[in-house]
Computed example of a mutant assay.
Amino acid sequence: MTGTTTLKPATTVTIVQADYAKADHAKAIVAMLRVYAMDPMGGGEDLLDQVKANLVPGLAATPAASSLLAYVGDQVAGLANLMTTFSSFGGAPLINIHDIVVAKAHRGTGVGRALFDAIHQTAEDIGACKVTLEVLEGNAPARALYASLGYGDYVLDPEMGKALFWQKRL
């Protein structure tokens, strides 16, 4: 997936499918994930050296993984790490947005929307039944963007409540 979007005021965003074998793409992926990690919404701490070293090789070794990079000019401005899997209830592929980040200097300029346009086009291209993501309750700007794009709580039966995202660290 590659595309260019012109945003207001005259911000041109280019979205490219990352090639994990390209050094500049690998460097951009690590740089953007570090931006995310150091943000309060990503935990507020830099990635460990081991994580930085393993990140791109690990993505490359994961058949379900793909990444989109957003550029404004020649500057990396955003990243989306995606995992494609299969929805047993939908009987079709689904894309999970595992990570999405926009550099602080580019937030509110449409870079996030451009990334979502590319994600949605990718999902359409593979016949996906849905796109999923997780968001922190306190991340109001991201929640507002996601809601404006049609995302909402995962509910099968309102009487059973919303789905919860749990984890167990190993």
Score class of each variant (00 low, 15 high):
A80G: 05
N96S: 09
L82V: 12
Q167A: 11
V16L: 01
L7C: 04
H98F: 11
C129N: 10
M32K: 02
G138D: 12
Y151M: 09
L55T: 12
P93C: 07
Y146S: 04
D19S: 05
T84E: 13
V72Y: 06
P93D: 05
G108T: 14
G161K: 10
D157V: 10
E159F: 00
A61W: 07
L55D: 02
K27S: 08
H98E: 10
A21V: 06
L68H: 11
A103L: 10
R113P: 00
L145E: 04
T132L: 14
A31D: 15
G42N: 06
T122H: 10
A80Y: 02
G152A: 05
G78D: 05
E45W: 01
G112F: 10
Y146K: 04
L115S: 02
A26T: 08
Q75P: 00
Y146I: 08
I95P: 03
S88E: 14
T4G: 03
K104E: 15
T14A: 08
F165A: 04
T62V: 07
V111G: 03
A65S: 15
I100Y: 03
P57M: 01
I100Q: 03
P141A: 05
G91W: 13
P158I: 13
N81R: 04
I15Q: 00
R34E: 13
M38S: 12
L94S: 05
P9R: 15
L33R: 01
H98D: 07
T109I: 03
L115R: 13
L149R: 14
V135Y: 08
K22T: 10
V135C: 12
T2K: 05
Q121G: 00
L156T: 15
L48W: 06
Q50D: 11
K104C: 00
P57W: 01
K27M: 00
G73A: 08
R113I: 10
A18W: 13
A10F: 10
A147W: 02
V131H: 08
A61H: 06
V101Q: 07
V111T: 04
G108H: 12
L55F: 05
V72M: 08
A144T: 15
E159G: 03
T122E: 09
I119K: 04
P63C: 01
V13C: 02
M41D: 03
L164V: 13
L69E: 06
V51G: 00
A105Y: 03
A10Q: 14
G90H: 05
V76K: 01
T11C: 01
T5V: 07
L33M: 09
A77Q: 05
Q17D: 13
P9F: 06
L170G: 11
T12S: 03
C129W: 07
K52Q: 11
